[in-house]
Amino acid sequence: MENNLLENQLIKRCRNGESTAFTELIKRYRKQLFTYLWRLCGDKLEAEDLMQETLIKAWKGILSYKHESKFSSWLFTIAHNVAMDYYRKSKVRSSIFVTDELRAADYNNPHTELIRNELRDILECAVNSLPEKQREVFLLREHSGMTFKEISVATKEPLNTVLGHMHYAMEKLKKALRVKNVI
């Protein structure tokens, strides 16, 4: 409750053009947002670009934020749209959502990341190998804290379709974990 009040105050200050308030507000979701974008596109540099674009749009658009949804949902919806726009634009060249093999290779590359434990690798590879829509829904659900109804609005898909994506995503994740006897 107190957290929400503080967030509302920060939003109000952002509307008045206080960049420090915006910094404080974004810091709360910095990691979730960046992780979401990184795991969605599978590339750190691309994720940074998308993060930058998301922040610009959030700063410009905060005046139109209507408090009808949680701020985190609003912010992640922007991030999702930015990623989808970027994906559509770059589709002609090549998908930013690289193939599973490439993505797996990237995650197994010792130069791209620090040492990962086995479980982390399993989960990340499993998530990255998910089909696009399933990954979108799964990541939104896990990182934004949005309800399925909100995800349905953000992805412009029916609620049942969103639930279906989540179901299949989770099945694949569990399958990967079962193979390694984690669950």
Binding site: T35, Q52, W59, L123
Partner: peptide, 26 residues
């Protein structure tokens, strides 16, 4: 499965990059 995923360490970007992004955004 969810809790395992949720317990994964989140990715982050450097403070310098983050500050630059915010500066550019605002």
């Amino acid at each position: 499965g969810l809790s395992l995923y949720e317990n994964l360490e989140l990715e982050d970007l450097s403070d310098e990059n983050f500050d630059l992004m915010l500066k550019k955004a605002t």
